[in-house]
Every structure is written in structure tokens, then in C-alpha cells.
Amino acid sequence: MNECPHCGVDDCEATFHECLVRDFTDPGFGIVHHLTVGAYMLQHNAYTDEMASHMADFVLEHLDRPPGETEKHRLRAWTDGAQRVTRRGVAPPLALTGGWPLTIADVDAQHAEAYCTTVRAWAQSVARIIANE
């Protein structure tokens, strides 16, 4: 077993990549792609502190609706811009009392409806924790 120091899930990165495959191959799953990536990256402390705050707000604003083309363009400009949005090297795990209430292990990928519901719950949980830190 390979328990992640960030989320405590065995082989979470492999699970994340399985989610991405679903996101890109089935529009029913892909509707929450922005939440899957945001929740995973936030939970794994991959964003800089400034970007983490922005991404937590973005996730909370888009729990029930995917971002529109203007919002996607703005996010892409931010992440592809000159300012660094991800941490360099290995990010330290966030210090959380009691750990994360939800992780990628709680995502139900049996069918699109369950997937979207559980990704939304996971993303909301992570983003609220980050927004309140």
C-alpha cells in the first residue's frame, strides 16, 4: 500500500488519473472536471497559497454549474500566465486536525450521476476547509 501523506488514501494519484479518463471520455462525468481537478490539487497542497484561495472560491462558486467560456478563459489565463500557480517541488501536507472528512476515495464512479454527486460533495468539503484556513 502507498498511503498518501496529503489525503491518507492509498494510490490516490492513480484514482485521480482514472477520474480524469472518465472526465475526458464521458460528458456525463466531465461536467464536474473543474471540481475533480480543483479538489485534488487543493487537497494535495499543490497550489501556491494565493492560488489556493482563488481556487477554493472558484470551486465553491461552481459546485452546481460548470464554468462558462468566459470563466474558463479567465482561469486559463491565470494558470498559464507569468505568475506561478503551483508549488515547486514536493508540497508539504496541510495540517488538519482529524484529517480530511472526504477524499477521492469517497468518489463513486459507478455511473455519472453518482460520480457528479460525490465529486461535488468532496470538492465542497475541501474548498470550505481551504477557504476557512
Rank of each mutant, 00 (worst) to 15 (best):
V37I: 15
A123H: 07
P5D: 02
K72H: 10
D10S: 12
S53E: 03
R76G: 04
H17W: 08
E61Y: 04
K72W: 12
H17D: 03
G81E: 03
Q43K: 08
G28Y: 12
L102F: 08
H44N: 15
T117Q: 12
L96M: 08
H17Y: 08
R88Y: 12
R22A: 08
P101T: 07
P101S: 08
T36Y: 01
E3P: 14
A112D: 10
L35P: 03
D11R: 07
H62L: 01
A14E: 07
D11S: 08
P27Y: 06
T36L: 03
A127I: 02
V107L: 11
A131W: 06
T97Q: 04
E133V: 00
N45Q: 09
T86R: 10
T70P: 03
T103S: 14
V37T: 14
V119D: 02
D64M: 01
A46I: 02
V21A: 10
G68N: 15
V37G: 04
G89I: 00
P101V: 00
H33L: 01
L94Y: 10
G8R: 07
G68C: 07
E71D: 14
F58K: 07
L94H: 07
D23G: 05
V107Q: 10
A127F: 06
S125K: 08
H33G: 06
V37D: 10
I31C: 13
I31W: 15
K72I: 09
T86W: 10
L63P: 07
A82N: 04
D49L: 02
R22F: 11
K72Y: 10
W122A: 01
Q83W: 02
E113G: 14
G98A: 08
V9Y: 13
P67A: 14
A46Y: 15
E71M: 09
V107C: 11
V90F: 09
H17I: 00
P92F: 06
C116D: 00
A77G: 05
G38D: 04
H73V: 04
I129Q: 14
T117W: 02
C4P: 05
E61R: 09
D57Q: 11
A39N: 03
M51L: 00
T79F: 12
G30F: 09
C7T: 11
V32S: 09
F29I: 00
F58Y: 14
D49N: 08
V37N: 07
F29H: 08
D10Q: 12
D108F: 12
A131F: 06
Q124Y: 01
H54G: 00
E3R: 13
T15D: 08
I129P: 04
L42R: 07
R88W: 12
V32Y: 05
